[in-house]
């Protein structure tokens, strides 16, 4: 099998994730898109690990999974907080950074 088929699949998933992060209004859906981006990265890590014949790619993919779990936990907590304060999780309404 070609290395590139995995890398290109990962690229597709990554770009779809980016699209989702930019366009989704719903906070939870943004989180889902971020998960897709992380998964794309994981495919790359494991693919290059297999390519080099070392388990280190998988090791780092596992670390990414663990970090992603933490990220979802915090992310959802933030979304819930926003929901509690604004009664909405529409990210386009969250514009406290407006200059």
């Amino acid at each position: 099998m070609l290395l590139n088929q995995f890398l290109l699949l990962a690229a597709v998933l990554f770009c779809l994730g980016v699209y989702g992060v930019i366009t989704r209004k719903n906070g939870v859906m943004v989180l889902m898109s971020i998960e897709m981006i992380l998964n794309a990265v994981n495919i790359n890590l494991v693919a290059f690990g297999a390519f080099n014949g070392t388990p280190i790619g998988s090791v780092f993919a596992l670390f990414v999974i663990a970090v992603a779990a933490a990220e979802v936990g915090i992310g959802l907590a933030i979304v819930l907080l926003i929901y509690r304060n604004k009664k909405s999780i529409d990210f386009s309404e969250v514009d406290l950074l407006k200059g």
Partner: peptide, 21 residues
């Protein structure tokens, strides 16, 4: 300068994300 740049600083995080990417 700020007045000019202000239009891009609309506080919408996702737009910032788009610029970032």
């Amino acid at each position: 300068t700020g007045a000019g740049l202000r239009k891009t600083q609309n506080g919408k995080i996702q737009q910032y994300a788009a610029y970032l990417f």
